[in-house]
């Protein structure tokens, strides 16, 4: 999802009997639904997995400002412009609370920034696709924020207190994001021929990448079991993806759009849709840095950070001067 590539220890899940007393007490707390707080004892693997997951999530919010932010200056009405600014601003805010949540685990925001800019830390593959038309802004709100909600609603119940609380705040805003995206799509689908085509084209391009947001199939991800035992993860990637497809297909129909998957069909028996194989090769290429926009996204973040160095240093220098003056005055 926003943290698609999180690897937990991968050693396989221990049973309660195999655990030392302190670890057993921790696991029992988790099992009982009691939140783990930053000062509580926790296994190193739990801490590391959470740091990776929360920081990937934060980086996704930050990089996620870029594809949509690119359309702020071109938004077609003043109202759309205001809504889009507010949305992109929310994403920056999400990044901020998530960095704060990760900091409680003993990693600094500067360290996390450094990991993002050096390419060591990952962010969601979805933000490496280009926004080519205004309809992409609609499709992102509808599909990408829609998938984000699907993933983040269960994370509100995550065992780690600060992450769970951050998710509660974030989810409220994400549902506004999804509504505004769907609303853009509605306007386009009820609009001119060119607008309808724009909407269909956006769905064609964003459908598969949205499904990829949930991460590789569970069969391929060895690390899910431990994360589920720790209640860092509640549902499997495939379960969430299925829920997303089932929710989204009727919405596409309502818009009069065609979901670009010839294998898509209702399966009465499972009470959900069957859908075509996802191009995992493309997914792994994008994660490896070879998506259409990886280089541009990273270049934009690095430029913002390096162009802004004088600004951050200037404020620090001022704070030092002020401190020195205060000391001298005493």
């Amino acid at each position: 999802m926003y943290a698609q590539e999180v690897k937990s220890t991968g050693k396989g899940v221990k049973s309660l009997d195999e655990m030392e007393p302190i670890e057993r007490a921790f696991q029992e707390k988790v099992n009982a639904g009691i939140k783990i707080e930053p000062k509580d004892w926790m296994p190193e693997g739990y801490r590391k997995t959470l740091i990776r997951q929360i920081s990937q999530h934060a980086h996704s919010e930050i990089v996620g400002q870029l594809p949509e932010g690119a359309w702020i200056t071109r938004a077609p009405t003043l109202e759309r412009k205001a809504i889009l600014i507010a949305k992109v601003q929310d994403e920056a805010g999400h990044g901020l609370y998530l960095y704060c949540a990760a900091e409680t685990l003993g990693v600094s925001r500067d360290q996390m920034t450094e990991q993002l800019l050096s390419g060591k830390a990952k962010y969601s593959s979805i933000f490496n696709y280009p926004t080519l038309t205004w309809a992409d802004i609609g499709a992102i709100g509808w599909l990408v924020d829609g998938a984000a909600i699907m993933n983040q609603v269960p994370l509100q119940r995550c065992s780690f207190g600060p992450y769970s609380r951050a998710m509660i705040r974030v989810c409220k805003e994400e549902s506004f994001h999804q509504r505004q995206g769907y609303d853009i799509m509605m306007k386009l689908c009820n609009g001119t021929q060119a607008q309808q085509e724009m909407a269909q084209d956006a769905l064609n391009r964003w459908w598969q990448p949205s499904l990829m947001m949930f991460g590789p199939s569970d069969a391929q991800s060895v690390h899910s079991a431990q994360s589920m035992a720790w209640k860092i993860k509640q549902d499997t990637n495939d379960e969430l993806r299925q829920k997303f497809v089932d929710q989204t297909v009727p919405q596409a129909k309502y818009l009069g759009l065609c979901v670009p998957d010839p294998d898509l069909k209702w399966n009465e028996e499972k009470g959900g849709y069957d859908f075509g194989e996802i191009d995992w090769e493309e997914f792994f290429e994008v994660v490896a840095g070879n998506g259409p926009c990886n280089a541009d996204r990273m270049a934009a973040r690095r430029k913002a950070w390096s162009d802004g160095a004088w600004f951050r240093d200037g404020l620090m220098a001022h704070a030092h001067k002020k401190q020195t003056r205060n000391v001298a005055a005493e």
């Binding site: 400002q65 932010g69 702020i72 913002a304 162009d307 951050r312």
Partner: peptide
């Protein structure tokens, strides 16, 4: 508003978006 996502620090992204709004 063109600064959104490109400011020197996250807090400035947020503050400038506020001003633009």
């Amino acid at each position: 508003s063109a600064w959104c996502g490109h400011a020197p620090i996250l807090e400035e992204d947020i503050a400038l978006a506020n001003v633009a709004l």
